[in-house]
Design a binder for these strands. Structure first.
Length: 215
DNA sequence: GACCAGGCACATC
DNA sequence: GATGTGCATGGT
C-alpha cells in the first residue's frame, strides 16, 4: 500500500462523486440478470442490452434453468438487439453449463468459493474475459474486485498513473494494492469512471472541464 | 454512410 | 507477445 497513490485514488473518487453523485449501477436486479447483462454488454451500448434483457424477461428466460433449456436459435433471436447475437448466445450457454457442471446449479456453492479460485474458474469459461469476470464477481457476487475498462485506463494514463503499455491486471493491481477491499466503494468507483466516459470524453483525451483536470 | 459502444477468442507472424 | 480480424445491432 503506497500512501501517496492511495490518497490520489481516493481523491479521484471524491472528485468524480462530487461531480456526478451516486450511479446506482445494476440496482435491485437478480444475480442472473446481472450476469446475463455482463455478457451481453461486451463491446455494446447498454441501451441495446436493455432491449435484449427485456425480450428475455418477456419470454421468461431470465433464470439459468430456462436459459439452460433454451435452444440456440431461440436464445439468439431474443438477444438480437444486443449485437453479436450468435456468439453471445453461445457465451450465455457456456456460462450456464459451467454453473451447473461446477456448482450443481447452487448459488450458495458458487458464491462461497474462495475468490482466487472462483475468479480463475469464471475466467476459464469461453467468452468470459477479465472485465466480464470481474463485473460478475463485483456486481453479482459482491466480491471486492476492481473492474477495469478502457476508459479507466485512458483516464489514468492521462494523469500519468499508469504506463502506456499497462495491461488489465497491472491497472487492476494499482487499485487493489492501494485501496482497502470494499464492495460498495469499488462498485461506485467503477460506475463513476463509466459515467465520466459517457458524459465527457467519449473517444478523445480528457476534455478541458474534466472533473479530474488539475490533479 | 461512417463511426461507435462497459470484449473476447482465435489466427497468424 | 504483439498485432489483426470476426462478431452485429441500434444510436448519433
Amino acid at each position: 500500500m503506497n500512501k501517496r497513490v492511495s490518497k490520489q485514488l481516493i481523491d479521484i473518487y471524491n472528485k468524480l462523486f462530487n461531480r456526478f453523485g451516486p450511479q446506482y449501477w445494476w440496482p435491485g436486479k437478480t444475480k442472473t440478470e446481472i450476469i446475463v447483462g455482463a455478457i451481453l454488454t461486451q463491446n455494446t451500448n447498454w441501451e441495446n442490452v436493455k432491449k435484449a434483457i427485456a425480450n428475455l424477461r418477456q419470454a421468461k428466460m431470465l433464470t439459468f434453468a430456462a436459459l439452460r433449456n433454451a435452444d440456440h436459435e431461440t436464445l439468439a433471436q431474443l438477444i438480437r438487439p444486443s449485437g453479436y447475437y450468435n456468439i453471445k448466445a453461445a457465451r450465455l450457454k457456456n456460462f450456464v453449463e459451467f454453473f451447473y457442471e461446477e456448482y450443481g446449479g447452487s448459488w450458495k456453492k458458487f458464491q462461497s468459493e474462495p475468490l482466487e479460485t472462483l475468479r480463475e474458474k469464471i475466467l476459464s469459461v469461453n467468452g468470459v474475459g477479465p472485465e466480464t469476470a470481474d463485473s460478475i464477481l463485483l456486481y453479482a457476487l459482491d466480491k471486492p474486485v476492481f473492474v477495469i475498462d478502457a476508459f479507466t485506463k485512458r483516464a489514468l494514463l492521462e494523469h500519468k498513473m499508469i504506463k502506456k503499455d499497462a495491461g488489465y491486471h497491472d491497472v487492476q493491481k494499482l487499485f487493489m494494492d492501494n485501496l482497502e477491499p470494499d464492495v460498495p466503494f469499488f462498485n461506485e468507483y467503477h460506475a463513476l469512471f463509466v459515467r465520466l466516459a459517457k458524459e465527457h470524453c467519449r473517444t478523445r483525451p480528457l476534455c478541458q472541464d474534466c472533473p479530474l483536470a488539475g490533479l
